[in-house]
Structure formats: structure tokens, C-alpha cells
Design a protein around this nucleic acid. Structure first.
Lengths: 265, 265
DNA sequence: CACCGGAGTTTCACCTGGTGTAACACTGCA
DNA sequence: TGCAGTGTTACACCAGGTGAAACTCCGGTG
């Protein structure tokens, strides 16, 4: 947690100028001077630098500044997951401050849940070393079951079919669909899903059991991601955790869904 | 022409870091240190600033840095014309240094040619104040005729139909399509189009006639833009200009087309 | 034609603010 | 327990960023 790191004023100003430029389709030196309040010589130097960096250009037709077309490619690499992770991160942080226990957010991908962001780092309790590719099983983890439980029936069926063909023993429960579907229906009516007992251990020593619940982040009828809350089974009961934190978790899921639909800042 | 303006090192470094970040999907401080050669404390400050500026973020999961999803929106405002103008600008500049006389580049839009970029500013001869919205007539200007002559027949017909309904007297020639089509066929076989005699005046005093030729910037069969070369009719003959500069103009058009297809830098 | 005002550019001296070394803290790994 | 690698903090130096002021260039106006 960097706290006392200072920021670089010259760079911050440069970004400001770039953003000002981005708001207008084109801007004269005067426009930028009025908007940013920076002295013109300063602007001249900043704009020169932005030009050399290939993010702005000065039209030789009218001498006005514009953002370069090359910035179109910025952020082209990153997928939906990145946007989800980014919007979720601050919500997870706040959640962890309130609940103390850590949360994860994950999306379904290729037969498993892929963890995108986590507040495990900042819980006062411990660190769960879940970093084996950050993928957890659909039928064992709370998040996987939440995804299945709250997805439209067609998608649920497709995933279960896929799992039943999987070579991974943790996925084999899918070969008995009726039992699984009954459990999932149960999760759905309760409004949250639970981790399969015994899946996942807690802490380095791996002594204590981990327990977790998860809720979906919904976009329309689709499950965009799943949000979990984990704790050490020895420390408190599931009933207690649900009573204390479920609504908070659901609110957070709704907030994340909202942020993704209309990101601010 | 700013010559002695210094650039801002701190900003240039910040942009470098951002680009480095953009190349990788995610990067640790060490990665960035290796790639940019900047001292780690310096990077820490730069990254802090980029974060505050909303263009980078640090995942709390793994502590690695990524570009923020918000940069996806950068450059979303600008259209194809901006990209064309940007790629053409340096080519026009070079062209003007070689030929001394000025060039324009324009695209067809809503019944007229819209000038995107120009090297009139830097020709030693004069300044043509063509800035009335930077739009010139299709049938009178060399660029308008080049667009028509080299476009697929269907588009040519559609534009002529539109012009024939125009209220602007300069467009009325379109009401006699057979004559216009013959002229355009002529332009096409010659490889360049010419300005209608008497259209456009030269310089502030508006004494001397302007003359111009234009060639298309082709993308497949479509005319993406048109590139013109203008001169004062009294100073030299059209034959002379064609002999000296036509191939140069065509090469430039091809170069611009290439740049637009695969922009470098 | 002289004058004026506004935009852009250059110069320059001040001194802030950016910089990197060095020392420190943390975390796995052997 | 020590070691290596990585991230973070402190600090003193002085390069380099800054803006006031002066200047140029242009177009408009009386």
C-alpha cells in the first residue's frame, strides 16, 4: 500500500491537457489555456511532448491541436474481464473494510470460475493461497454454484454437460444432474450459493476449513460475474455470516453491475 | 512553426511508462523497470500519477499494474476523416517542400468535398483563403471531379443525382449528365482531374487565376479521399505541372492510402 | 497608414519539484 | 536461518519545469 508516494505534477498536468484535448474535437492554444489555467509557454511544452509521444497532433491546416487517431488502439487489448475487475476492485475493498472477511469476484470461463479480483490481501485474518491460475471448480466453489444457479436454464444445462465430460474428479458430480439441479434450485431460492463442504482450505497451515457464500452479479438475465464472501469455518457459523452480511454482499453485487453498465470517472 | 520549444521530460517518461504498460496485459514494477530503465522510485511516482489520472490501475489481487479500461473511450470521438488528415499531413508537408506549390486533401461529404488538411500555409507563394467551411464544389473543383471520376459508377450516379437537385448554381452542371460523364471519363483515362476554368481565385488580391489537378486516394475500388496540387495559372502551365509533378502526386496518394491501411508509429 | 488587440512564441532567472542512491521492509525459497 | 528478489521510504542534490515579461505576427478598425 503506497501511502507517501508523491505524484509527478508535470505528468499530471500533461494528462489534464490530454483530457482537455479529448473533450473538444480540436482546441487552440488559447482554448487550452482557458480550460486548464496553465501558462501558455507551459502548454506549448506539454503539447510538444504529447506530439512527440504520438498521442496528440497539431493540424498544419489551422494550427489547432487534436488527439491523435493512434489513441484509438489504447485499451483495445483488454477484455470484459478487465473492466469487471476494475469496477469491482474498489467495491471489494470497501466490502472487506466493513466485513473484515475477504471477498473474491470471478467470471465463468472454459469450464471453471476465473478469479479476477480479490480482497484477500487486505483482510486482517490471513492469506489464502488460491493462486493456482486463479481458477476454482464450478460444482465445489460457492462462486461456481452461484453462476450455475442464477444463469438461464439453457446455459446451466450446457455447462453441466461440459463438466460431465471433464477429466477432473472435482467436476464428476455433474454426471448425476438431477441431484445437482436440485441443490442449485435450492441455492437459487435462498438467494445465495454455498461452497461444497470440505472444498478449499484456509491459510498456510491448512488446518481450518474454509467456508464461503456467493451471489451473482446480474446484467439482465445473464450472470456477469459472481461475488463471494469467505471465512474460516472455525471462527463463525454460516448462519451468522448470512445474517450479518448477505444483504451487504447483494448490495455490492448490484453496485458492481451498475458500475459496469455506466462506469464513472 | 515551433522550433525551440523544449519538451517536458517528466511527461515524456510518463507516456513511455503508459505505453510499456499498454504492451503487456499487466506488468510488475520490476517489468517496467527492466523495460523503461527508469529507477523504481521514479516509476512508483509515475504510476501513482497515472492511477490518479485514471489511465492505469493497480490490481489489489496481485499488485500488478494494468491500463485502465477507461482508456477504451479515448479517440472514440474522432472519425475516419481525422485518421486520414493525420496520416496525410506529413505527406502533404513533404510534397510541398518538393513541389513548392501547395496541396490539399479532401473527402466527399454531403454533396461537397470537405478539405481535411492542407499545405497552403507553408508554400512560399501565398495563402489562399479557402476557409469558408473548407468545402468545395464537386463539379468545379479538381478534387470533386477526381472523386467522381474514380468512384464506382453507382456512387458517381448517386452523387450526380443529388447535385442535380441542389440549389447551388455551381452544382447545376449535373443537370446535363451526359456532358459531365464524358468529361469525367476523360479525367479517368488521363489519371487525374482538373479544376473547372475560372473556379477559385488566388491570393488575397484575387488577381490571378488558380489552377489545380487532383488524384484519388484509393482503397480498393473506393475513393477514400482526393489529393490536389494547386498553382497560380499565370506562373506556369498545366502541361508543365503535370509533366513535373503528376507522378509525385500519385505516389503520395498511394503512400497515404498505405498509411491509412497500416498506420505506423 | 498607423494604431490596436489578441493569439502565439521566445527568453530567461528563479527555485520548486523531479530525481536516483541508499537504506529499509517484506516474502518466499533453500 | 540466511539469501535473493521485489517493492517501498527517506533524503539531499540540482536539473529542469515554470511563468512573467517581452516580442512577433496577423487581421481588423478608424
Amino acid at each position: 500500500m503506497q501511502v507517501r508516494v508523491k505524484s509527478v505534477r508535470a505528468l499530471a498536468r500533461g494528462l489534464d491537457v490530454f483530457k482537455a484535448l479529448h473533450n473538444h474535437r480540436s482546441a487552440s492554444l488559447q482554448d487550452l489555456h482557458d480550460e486548464t489555467g496553465l501558462a501558455k509557454p507551459t502548454l506549448l511544452r506539454i503539447l510538444k511532448t504529447l506530439e512527440e509521444g504520438g498521442v496528440a497532433r497539431r493540424s498544419s491546416r489551422d494550427g489547432r491541436y487534436r488527439v491523435s487517431a493512434s489513441v484509438r488502439f489504447f485499451g483495445q487489448n483488454l477484455g470484459v474481464e478487465d473492466a469487471i475487475a476494475e469496477q469491482a476492485a474498489p467495491v471489494l475493498d470497501r466490502l472487506c473494510r466493513d466485513m473484515l472477511w475477504p471477498s473474491d469476484i470471478a467470471v465463468y470461463k472454459d469450464g471453471a470460475m476465473e478469479i479476477l479480483e480479490s480482497s484477500r490481501h487486505q483482510t486482517p485474518f490471513m492469506v489464502n493461497r488460491d493462486r493456482i491460475g486463479f481458477r476454482v471448480h464450478m460444482l465445489m466453489s460457492a462462486m461456481g454454484r452461484a453462476h450455475l444457479a442464477f444463469s438461464p436454464a439453457a446455459e446451466r444445462r450446457a455447462i453441466l454437460t461440459r463438466l460431465s465430460r471433464s477429466g477432473d474428479p472435482y467436476d464428476h458430480a455433474a454426471r448425476n444432474p438431477s441431484a445437482v439441479l436440485a441443490d442449485l434450485a435450492n441455492d437459487r431460492t435462498r438467494g445465495y450459493a454455498v461452497r461444497e463442504t470440505g472444498y478449499g482450505r484456509w491459510g498456510i497451515a491448512e488446518r481450518s476449513q474454509a467456508d464461503a457464500i456467493a451471489v451473482p452479479v446480474l446484467q439482465g438475465r445473464r450472470v456477469l460475474a459472481c461475488l463471494s464472501l469467505a471465512w474460516a469455518a472455525g471462527a463463525t457459523t454460516r448462519t451468522e455470516m448470512v445474517a450479518r452480511h448477505l444483504s451487504r454482499l447483494q448490495d455490492a453485487a448490484a453496485e458492481i453491475a451498475g458500475r459496469i453498465a455506466a462506469p464513472d470517472q
